[in-house]
Design a protein around this nucleic acid. Sequence first.
DNA 1: TTGTACGCGTTATCAG
DNA 2: CTGATAACGCGTACAA
Lengths: 360, 360
Amino acid sequence: MSQLTIEDIARIAGVSRSTVSRVLNGQPNVRPSVRDRVQEVINSYGYAPQAAARQLVMRKTRLIGLILPDNAHHLFGNPIFAEIARGVSQVCAQRGYTPMLFIGRQDMNEATFFSLLRGRHFDGVILISSDRQDRSAAMLREAGMPYVRVGHDPEDDGDLQYVDVDNVAAARVAVEHLIALGHRRIAMLKGLAKDVCTHARLEGYRQALAAAGLPFDEALVGDGDWTPASGYAWTRRFLDLPEPPTALFSSNDMMVAGVVRAVQERGLTVPDDLAIVGFDDLLQTTMIFPELTTIRQPCVEMGTCAAELLLDQLEHNRRERVQIILPTALIIRQSCGYCRQAVQASASAPAVSGEEQRAG
Amino acid sequence: MSQLTIEDIARIAGVSRSTVSRVLNGQPNVRPSVRDRVQEVINSYGYAPQAAARQLVMRKTRLIGLILPDNAHHLFGNPIFAEIARGVSQVCAQRGYTPMLFIGRQDMNEATFFSLLRGRHFDGVILISSDRQDRSAAMLREAGMPYVRVGHDPEDDGDLQYVDVDNVAAARVAVEHLIALGHRRIAMLKGLAKDVCTHARLEGYRQALAAAGLPFDEALVGDGDWTPASGYAWTRRFLDLPEPPTALFSSNDMMVAGVVRAVQERGLTVPDDLAIVGFDDLLQTTMIFPELTTIRQPCVEMGTCAAELLLDQLEHNRRERVQIILPTALIIRQSCGYCRQAVQASASAPAVSGEEQRAG
DNA sequence: TTGTACGCGTTATCAG
DNA sequence: CTGATAACGCGTACAA
């Protein structure tokens, strides 16, 4: 039976609960011979303390919740979440915590979600979301749950600690690269409007155009939704324009898959007929369309940073404001056309944009 | 403070703990006026019972663990897991349970994982894995944790309850479709050898060839690993063969992305130079390569089935053997060439293969 | 209908 | 170094 309690183990080993507890938690002050005997019993019965009982007295679960934008397939659909989760997981394991991905929020009402938070299942939460409609940040605060956010909304200063990249600067670098290559009609594929980074990347696009004295043309901006399907649909529209773009900046790599399909379908080629820069640098995209020039996001590092911030917050009661902006990099491949000058240009305007800054 | 206990609420509302508890759990035998007053206090203070304390006495967490093959990015990489999770989530929410995706196992040693299981964090677990090297099924049993498996290994009869599709039959139908279209040199892309379904799908391929009197040619079988990259690499090798295949059956849809790229790179086209049938019917593939003929797996339904099985097991102590084999369907699009005859042929050999069977 | 008292399995405190 | 014993917060018979 798995109904064994610490009491049972104690009886079998011929000691008291206290001693078993000490062995369990690696405390000193146990005679080696006794420790060995107790450990022996523990192992042979496969005993492990019941989490709930321990949590009740410890007031800690050593569980970290991972919360993603409200929609599960969206979540899985984009591999960057997996990368971030990987970073979180590494740090958690290293420091003795267990990360749990919270799924099924879309099948649950707000009150239930809130109760779950208040139930103190988790010591802390890492919220991966740049969705400004997402109420989870506010609920986390209301529930008094320590959390660190990956991505954030500059207009909502409620997030005490967050990790993000400089989306404006990154997008600007991407578009500047295209401009440096001589492109003057550059299309832009946006992500979903609810995500803050969508607007930031658009802003970077605008800034790059403005700096080069190029006009901002509404007709060249497509309302994507992060999926290949939207990339496909918008590219067709762009190519149908009286004066079609010669280059395109996509707010993420996934949409590029659709872009490429639309281009090829017309008998056109990348980069000759349409130069492309993406965003994310997904491994998966690399496999489907290997020569994509793109902005690399340090996903794993965003995860490790967030986790370290959170665990420090929990263990040392750090409650200061901390904002970490991680650097991105322009990865130049062939989807913009090989061009030595361009590489040099982007070297003078450094390929790595953004800067890490820790505000105490 | 969120340190409020049921005792505090009781004091504030001017009643006893018991009454608050009754209100909390929706029990009868509480005077309506009292109930309202207590509920008011609960709401205004945002009180929620502490999970650990409740779990300790109830001996239930109402949490369901979701465990996937040991590797997290693998997991996110393939959207079928997300679909299955969606099904699980729906049923759990409906029946008052909360599903949690267990991540980070790859950063954790076996002993830690085992302790976690014995710690009774979850009332039950849904294991999504056709990996025969994966020891989690055995550990789940050893830990005495109720679980239902999605996918299984016929050589390991330890799984009491599982949900799966008939991979052999599904693959056979796929290859028969190609044969019916007149193809005689049909390549096959396998998945990873550690996954049981890889072998099952190969077996289906063999059966279809044998039934048609076609030879089995080792040179036409590629050792894929589920990723587009492997599809790309193997297709290049296939096309380099002295007598290249005219058709290809891929063990999953993701690899097809690489296959298509390799074909197009040679200036060839699908389906004229290479007819393709995939497996899974991913929404994502549909967007990248819309005309893929493929085998549809009922992913969401696999999730709902598994969850219902598990919750029944928990609530009604069902411990009988249950194996559910869900039907797959051949979805005919254009990657094999449009062919009325073929559609008819596949209609006589019904498009829906497999059958649901419940063994008590 | 409401309140009292006990137990759930563990850790922490304090004597021995 | 070891063993009693008191919490931890909640649910629930049982008593009022």
